[in-house]
């Protein structure tokens, strides 16, 4: 049993990294644009789709698919921002309208993929090979997903803390008005944040596709988990998104040994309700 738990912890880490990356993008968009992006899960799915098509149909090496997925999904993010976010965000009740508009954009993306490729999963060839660490066997793909995810989060932190764009992004997150007062191009910063979040989601999709296979519904399930992570980890908190994402992946993975995958997922939603009851602003909030 101990070996099985260790194995599931190792597996949970790679899935948790995916949740962390998804939540990172969601929380960024919420923190800077103050909106909930319901199309976010579909950016993750599109990342997996680009990887699946390029590897299985065009024979492109897996590692070359990662930048391709990021760039192509950045374009999808740009289009979503232009068509579903910018035109409505400034209106009265803009945040609510954006919620519906991004939900619609997500449905359009998903239904288009379903209509074109069908619901059948597509196997994605990632990095081959298995590493044995005592009782735990890990594929190189899972190790790569964990390491690449850590690297991505580290790069993200460097961008936020050390670059001019990062400072501007944090400024807009803290005060839209003060950012305008000092002459920052707030709309541009918001658009770039939206696109950057789409890129991170695409990379998460590209990392997980060889592990779980691609299917058109993969974004829906993961986005819901992403929302759970963001709410538990406090809306707008990047450390909260990363830590809760990893925690959720580990918890779900280990719990599935004892109570099955579906019940494990249900327990996570129960955890969400408990958090909302006792820490409505999330566990990383300064106020209860």
């Amino acid at each position: 049993m101990g070996d099985l738990v260790l194995q599931q912890l190792a597996n949970g880490l790679s899935v948790g990294m995916t949740y962390a990356l998804i939540a990172l993008g969601l929380t960024m968009v919420f923190g800077v644009l103050h909106i909930v992006n319901f199309a976010h899960g579909e950016f993750y799915m599109l990342g997996g789709l680009v990887t699946a098509l390029l590897t299985s149909r065009a024979g492109v090496p897996y590692l070359a698919c990662l930048p391709a997925a990021a760039i192509l999904v950045a374009a999808a993010g740009w289009a979503t921002d232009r068509l579903a976010v910018r035109p409505v965000i400034g209106r009265p009740d803009g945040a609510t309208i954006v919620l519906v508009a991004t939900f619609a954009a997500g449905l359009i993306i998903n239904e288009t993929v379903l209509a074109t490729l069908g619901p059948a999963p597509i196997r994605v060839d990632g990095i081959a090979g298995v590493v044995k660490l005592g009782p735990v066997s890990l594929t190189w793909q899972r190790i790569f997903a964990i390491v690449f995810g850590i690297l991505l989060i580290a790069i993200f932190q460097i961008i936020l803390r050390r670059t001019e764009f990062g400072r501007q992004l944090r400024a807009v997150a803290q005060s839209d008005y003060a950012s305008r007062v000092i002459g920052l191009d707030v709309e541009r910063i918001k658009s770039l944040t939206f696109i950057l979040a789409a890129c991170v989601a695409a990379l998460a999709g590209a990392l997980i596709a060889p592990i779980l296979s691609f299917n058109a519904g993969m974004g829906y399930h993961t986005a819901i988990h992403g929302f759970v992570v963001v709410v538990i980890g406090t809306m707008g908190s990047i450390p909260g998104a990363v830590i809760c994402g990893l925690g959720l992946g580990l918890l779900e993975s280990v719990a599935s040994i004892f109570i099955g995958q579906e019940i494990a997922s249900a327990c996570i939603y129960a955890l969400l309700i408990v958090t909302l009851l006792f820490r409505p602003n999330g566990v990383f909030s300064r106020s209860a």
């Binding site: 803290q174 005060s175 003060a178």
Partner: peptide
């Protein structure tokens, strides 16, 4: 402009 209410970036 130095705005009314100061509007500094509080967490920076």
């Amino acid at each position: 402009l130095s705005p009314e209410g100061r509007h500094v970036f509080p967490e920076m």
